[in-house]
């Protein structure tokens, strides 16, 4: 493939030089969508959705709890996906993507645990029960910590990329096994005193609020990851001409900003 052919194909966005400005242009739009959807979701959740018959008002935690839990699992899968792409196709950008995703995934994972604990206290009477879902979520958080710690501990970016990719894939293979084993363990040890089944019927407005919040979490994730990946790209590509141009522009923008304020 010649350079001109390459620059015309969609694949060119896999090259850092094209991806960097694209990410900068797209991120604010996703952020704006996230804000709008969050407001809509909160309005649905707090003012339209009715009081739950059995749980009262406290169930309203669900509008962040479930999206956070979904996001944390999904982000891990996306991380593993980019890691696999990076290892197979040898594209540097893929590794950077998976590393930019990890902190956000870990934050959502923690939030799912935190909101789960606050929800659990009034409904189960304890902040923490060793329920299968909660326990798997906790282990997922540890997997995130492992990935982040490993990629940060390695100085050489090439090695950090690949080592991170391997541990992300090993983790992804193990997630279903962990979930299965924790479920098994849970059914053996959990007494009948604590019933964790959610109310089977959910008002349509509750579901709508939850889904809107889930999409908002998606948009937020995309925006923040695009913002996080940009400086990472600059750092990796610091030897190239185009990064120099980008940095000069940045410098001018900062100078203009200062002049305007003075």
């Amino acid at each position: 493939m010649t350079t001109s052919e390459r620059s015309r194909s969609v694949l060119r966005f896999a090259s850092p030089q094209y991806f960097y400005p694209l990410a900068g242009k797209l991120a604010p739009w996703f952020a704006a969508l996230a804000v709008v959807l969050t407001l809509a979701g909160l309005w649905l959740g707090f003012f339209v959705a009715p009081t739950d018959a059995t749980q009262g008002e406290v169930y309203r935690v669900i509008f962040i709890h479930v999206p956070a839990a979904w996001m944390s699992m999904f982000i891990y899968l996306v991380m593993a996906f980019w890691s696999a792409v990076g290892l197979v196709m040898n594209t540097r950008l893929s590794f950077v993507m998976s590393q930019a995703l990890a902190p956000t995934g870990a934050i959502f994972c923690f939030l799912a645990l935190w909101t789960g604990a606050l929800w659990g206290k009034p409904t189960w009477g304890a902040y923490w029960v060793w329920d299968a879902r909660l326990t798997s979520q906790l282990l997922l958080l540890f997997l995130y910590f492992g990935f982040i710690a490993l990629t940060r501990a390695i100085e050489d970016p090439r090695r950090a990329d690949r080592a991170g990719a391997i541990i992300a894939l090993v983790g992804a293979v193990n997630v279903p096994i962990i979930y299965f084993s924790v479920n098994w363990w849970n059914t053996l040890h959990q007494g009948a005193s604590v019933s964790l089944t959610k109310a089977p019927s959910m008002a349509a407005t509750m579901l709508a609020g939850m889904l809107v919040m889930a999409i908002a979490a998606w948009m937020y994730t995309i925006a923040v990851v695009l913002w996080r990946v940009r400086p990472m790209i600059l750092e990796r590509e610091r030897h190239t001409e185009w990064v120099g141009t980008v940095l000069e522009k940045e410098l001018q923008a900062v100078a203009a900003n200062k002049g305007g304020r003075a």
Binding site: F142, N174, W185
Partner: peptide, 27 residues
Amino acid sequence: ALTLGLRGGGMLLALLVLPLFVPVLIF
């Protein structure tokens, strides 16, 4: 293999593999 030659490799190794050990412990 992944933590070979890293500073603080021992603790990092524990962090990496302990979650993976859980199913074995359970069974």
